[in-house]
Computed example of a mutant assay.
Amino acid sequence: MSHYELRAASLPRPGQRLALGLLQLFGWRVRYKPLPGPHGVAIVYPHTSNWDFVIGLLGKWALGLPFRWLGKESLFAGPWAGIMRAWGGVAVERSAATGATQRLAEKMHASDWFWLALAPEGTRSYKPHWRSGFYHLALAARVPVVLVYFDYGRKELGVVDVVRLTGDQQADMASIAAAYQGRTGFHPELACPVTLATPRADSPEQQR
């Protein structure tokens, strides 16, 4: 199925139409293709600005899809904990890294619908590579990877391209890099090269 541009007239709920309206007010549009199943990993790139969180959250609300995302444990211990969980937040397991990826994969499949959104750069600052947690999680759970992009040059938020990992890291990352070619972040000079770091631990914390 080809992708399409999200339009308010096609959205069933007022909250979705409001979120899309706010995006459109600032000149943004959302391109979307139905997800390839009830479970998966969505990676978000490029991530170079705090504005990405705002645009991404409005996009999630406009789509009406309960994407989840990983956050520091401290976000889920304070007064904002309830809001963070309501917005789809999942606390990173800092104290029990061993086996965390497998546990997250099992948690994903134990749910009727579980898509986890991750920023593989792990930071808004420039780094020479991506963190590899998303790759190991997708392989462990045997789920597809949706490539979400922020393109500030075109003012587009896209949830379109899908990659099914083969385990051939070089070939998989080449496919991902090709899909992200030409996408421009808020600070283009801070976008990380689309290449993986050597994994150091079996932990989704790498995707923080």
Rank of each mutant, 00 (worst) to 15 (best):
L6E: 06
I83K: 10
G185H: 08
G71H: 07
G88Q: 13
S132Y: 11
G59W: 11
L23A: 14
T48M: 11
P128D: 01
G56M: 02
S175K: 15
A174Y: 15
Y126C: 00
W28K: 07
P188C: 05
L65K: 03
H3M: 12
C192H: 02
S132D: 04
V148I: 13
R17F: 09
Q206G: 05
L22Q: 10
G64I: 02
L165W: 03
R13K: 14
V162S: 02
V160P: 01
Q102S: 08
V145S: 01
L137E: 04
V44H: 04
G167A: 12
W61P: 06
A140R: 09
L57F: 11
Y135F: 11
A174E: 08
T48H: 15
W130T: 00
G78A: 05
S111Y: 14
S49G: 01
H129S: 11
H129I: 07
H109W: 15
R7T: 00
S203H: 04
W80E: 04
V145P: 02
V54C: 10
S95G: 11
R31G: 01
R164W: 13
I55V: 11
A117G: 12
I43G: 01
A110M: 08
Y135C: 02
A140H: 03
L116D: 04
G40E: 08
P34S: 10
A86T: 14
